[in-house]
Design a binder for these strands. Structure first.
Lengths: 206, 206
DNA sequence: AATAAATTTGACTCAAGGTTCAAATTTTAA
DNA sequence: TTAAAATTTGAACCTTGAGTCAAATTTATT
């Protein structure tokens, strides 16, 4: 924790390596933990588990992180950052509403199958402000996707119906991915993405 | 626990009330807990919480139940029992594959929104044989639904494609229901069922 | 009313696992 | 080579919550 406090004052002189290395290690702590959370769940993953998978000791983790809850929080943040970026990349697209939705959904599926990032459901284990922040971000993302659906409906590419229900429906599919993806090893990530997008399209096209 | 052991020997003489009452109370312990698990998650729900919501003391719960894990196990069992029943009721139907699937899905949605029963995701918190049993039941149900999809494909009512992926897709939607249903109070359970079935149909029809 | 069975409780034990910290070790820079 | 900073550790601490049990209380039976 010292390192992080120092870094602000030292950043003028300190070589970039320092901070970068610290950040990289911190990041890998969170990613490694996130992957364990996804498979075994937050409460079934102990700090010792996380530490061992990195060749460290439990105590060492606290050099990078305030506490276990912060790890959960940060892993959510990472996921939402990636999703925000995806959404942003389609902000001024010339694609139709439906096409945009398809593209976003495909990127989401790829995000969750390819990278280590995962959609996390243990929001209830976050307390107070942390929980609030994460729920806000989730809502923000859902709202943005809902807007795309509305655009598609206005433009006539997406069928009528409560936009929120459309979004909930396929966000659920996305979420469920975590429960079986790495288990059914024989399914190819691309096949999944193709199928899901196909089902999204035929389920929503006007 | 005595009561349960006795009941076997005493069942000849004992008035039905006794066992029935015990079973009813045990059942309500499990239902009440399941509902809390659904909202807050298994690990965020303590035995004290469960007890309080029934006007009891933690210790009293152990009169009806071996331990906390058994509650989780039994609540899964209850859900799967209900689903089995739904599946069974369409075993010898004359409906097409697609129509059968729609009907099943509608019943599933209603099961999860109307009754206290919930689809539970905390399987990882079950250990050893208990986990195995529950996973077996889940697989069995998924396999049966997959069979319906295959039947629909064979009969030409459902489009081609990996049947498992179809099932995973809408089982995910079903599952995600738990995450937002009772929060968004303004959505009517029937509207949800209607929408979901509509999206299922248009997403899978040949 | 009296007795037995069923049900509930308060007070306790116990283990798991998150967190802390001073000391040891390693890395970096002069 | 050496001193300061960064990183890691072992050994404890501490909180939470599951599970136990003998005793108290309630309910049913004669």
């Amino acid at each position: 924790m010292l390192a992080k406090c120092m870094s602000v004052q030292m950043s003028i002189k300190a070589p970039f390596d320092r901070d970068a290395q610290f950040a990289a290690k911190r990041r890998s702590v969170i990613l490694s933990a996130a992957s364990a959370f996804r498979r075994r769940g937050y409460h079934n993953t102990s700090m010792v588990d996380i530490a061992k998978s990195l060749g460290l000791t439990k105590a060492a983790l606290y050099y990078y992180v305030k506490n276990k809850e912060e790890i959960l929080f940060e892993s959510h943040v990472m996921t939402y950052d990636s999703m925000d970026e995806i959404l942003k990349s389609y902000a001024r697209t010339s694609l139709s509403g439906l096409e945009t939705l398809e593209a976003i959904f495909r990127d989401f599926v790829e995000l969750l199958t390819q990278s280590g990032v995962s959609l996390l459901t243990d929001v209830d284990s976050l307390k107070g402000d942390w929980e609030v922040q994460i729920l806000k971000r989730r809502n923000k993302i859902e709202r943005r996707v809902v807007d795309v659906v509305k655009r598609g409906q206005a433009g006539g590419t997406i069928r009528a119906g409560d936009p929120r229900l459309y979004v909930f429906f396929f966000m659920g599919a996305l979420n469920w991915l975590n429960a079986w993806y790495d288990i059914e090893g024989r399914l190819d990530a691309n096949d999944i993405a193709d199928h899901f997008v196909m089902q999204l399209r035929s389920g929503m096209a006007a």
